[in-house]
Amino acid sequence: MRRLTTIGFDADDTLWENEQFFQLTEARFREILAPHAEGAHVSERLLAAERRNLAHYGFGIKGFVLSMIETALDITRDKAGPETIRQILDAGREMMAHPVETLPDAEVTLAGLAGRYRLVLVTKGDLFDQERKLAASGLGDYFDAVEIVSDKNAATYRRVFSRHGDGPDRAMMIGNSLKSDVLPAIAAGSVGVHVPHALTWVVEHAEPPVGEKLFRQVERLGAIPSLLAEFD
């Protein structure tokens, strides 16, 4: 196998918790709209709005809040009052203010790799929120570069790993999302490593590329150093 010089890491649900806060807020949203619709229907309508709005708002809390407001208006046929909208906005602000919870092995893994490889954080979502979480995580100093992108595809990884490394064929991308972190990185020519997270958003689900020579899966970040020995 080729020798790797650059390692990309996803952020949300790879280095720190993220989806659990969206799910907790969605549960609160179902309670807010309980007088108007059953919880399962509210979640179904919200997911449909999120899918529709990704092209307009992108990924992150702000788009999620706007989708909740749109869903509330749709379900109530534009009768959701100021109090309902205020509750949704308050829920969004609470998400933005929540402390960052790093995942097990995140810091020790980064500390062990820093200096040996070029480490690049490749994350998508709202710029302000991602910068906030990186600063609060205490992990920023381990990275040689940070790329906050609107979406992740093969072109994204070719650009990022060419700008901050020796090209995608000398890079590895690590993340919890098969759809965003693994499959497009492999399409770009990089090694794609899946680190599963129990709460990965349904929009990020995809089938693993079984049999693909550039695909790897580990159950925790702490297994990354041993995996890298395969490429030395």
Rank of each mutant, 00 (worst) to 15 (best):
D166C: 08
R118F: 01
N153I: 07
R116Q: 12
Q130M: 14
I88R: 09
V210L: 15
R86C: 05
E44R: 15
G92T: 01
H41W: 07
G192H: 02
P184N: 01
D166T: 00
R2F: 03
I75W: 02
I174D: 00
L54G: 01
D74M: 04
R30F: 01
F64M: 03
E131I: 06
F22L: 10
P82W: 14
S162Y: 02
D10E: 15
Y142W: 06
H194K: 09
T5R: 02
H164R: 00
H36Q: 09
N18R: 06
R3C: 13
R52Y: 10
L110K: 01
I61C: 00
P208R: 08
P35F: 13
L47D: 11
I32V: 15
G175Q: 08
E44V: 10
F215N: 04
G189K: 04
M96D: 00
L24C: 02
V122T: 12
A136S: 12
E17Y: 13
E17D: 15
F143T: 09
F59V: 08
S190F: 04
S190A: 15
Q217W: 07
A97N: 09
H36W: 15
L103D: 01
F64T: 05
D166A: 04
L139M: 10
N18W: 06
A55R: 14
R159E: 07
G175R: 03
K62S: 00
D12G: 01
D10R: 14
E230A: 06
V42D: 00
I88L: 08
D166S: 08
V146N: 04
Y57C: 03
A106D: 04
T123E: 06
L47T: 14
Q23R: 15
E204R: 06
L127E: 08
A206P: 05
A154G: 03
G81W: 13
L127Y: 07
G165V: 03
L199T: 11
A72M: 10
L121Q: 03
G63E: 07
G165N: 05
F161N: 06
R2E: 09
Y57N: 05
T6N: 02
A80E: 06
R158A: 03
S150R: 14
P82F: 13
F22C: 09
V108E: 13
I32L: 11
A80F: 06
H36C: 10
Y157T: 07
P184Q: 02
F9V: 10
A188P: 09
A171V: 09
V65G: 15
W16Y: 12
A185R: 01
